[in-house]
């Protein structure tokens, strides 16, 4: 069990701070916008890079996301969490971007996925697993990619993910199960045994 326990006082302070920033942004405060931008930049670029294919510009969709944050900040509900609100916007912007360029987004072909029978691949390292994973992630649906990224990179709980994706928690769990099966199928069942 990894030690991911957050100090609840610190977490609450961060949440309050982010809500304060959103209120300031609703008042047209560019400095507050920059602060929020810096807080989310890395996470959002990473999330959007995974959501979109390489031919997409994750940073462009990030800026579309932050423009929505700017223009809708007055509608943010104080009872919600800023991070799930922003990631929800980013998720919808990513889906919109994928729809816009449906022709460009092509799944990779089978021969680009490394065969699990290849003996050299059994001694997989984190680095080449990471490279393979990048390709295999493109085989998942955008919804499955979102669940994987939000869980493993952003450390969200399944209920937070259900808020971001605007779907029931059962759907989040099912998408995760399907994603896990696909990852195992394409990465090879032995990738965890090294």
């Amino acid at each position: 069990m990894p030690d991911n326990a957050r100090n609840s006082g610190e977490l609450q302070a961060l949440i309050d701070d982010e809500k304060f920033l959103v209120r300031c942004i609703a008042g047209g405060d560019r400095a507050a916008f920059e602060k929020l931008y810096r807080l989310y930049y890395r996470r959002l670029v990473r999330f959007l890079s995974r959501m979109l294919s390489r031919s997409h510009d994750a940073e462009e969709v990030l800026n579309e996301t932050m423009l929505v944050v700017w223009s809708k900040s007055g509608k943010f509900k104080a009872t919600g969490k800023v991070s799930t609100w922003i990631f929800g916007i980013a998720y919808r912007q990513a889906l919109r971007s994928l729809r816009r360029s449906r022709g460009i987004f092509e799944p990779i072909t089978d021969d680009t996925v490394v065969s699990e029978s290849d003996a050299t691949e059994r001694a997989v390292t984190h680095i080449n697993l990471s490279n393979r994973l990048e390709q295999v992630m493109l085989r998942l649906s955008p919804e499955q990619r979102a669940v994987i990224e939000l869980t493993y990179f952003c450390d969200y709980s399944y209920s937070e993910i259900s808020e971001i994706l605007d779907c029931p928690t059962g759907t989040v769990k099912t998408r995760m199960l399907h994603a896990r099966r696909k990852l195992q199928r394409y990465l090879g069942s032995d990738w965890g045994q090294h």
């Binding site: 990894p2 030690d3 326990a5 869980t151 493993y152 450390d155 969200y156 709980s157 399944y158």
Partner: peptide, 12 residues
């Protein structure tokens, strides 16, 4: 089995 990913990320 279903909850393992969130057991790993420590959010259960």
């Amino acid at each position: 089995f279903e909850l393992l990913p969130w057991y790993v990320n420590g959010t259960l």
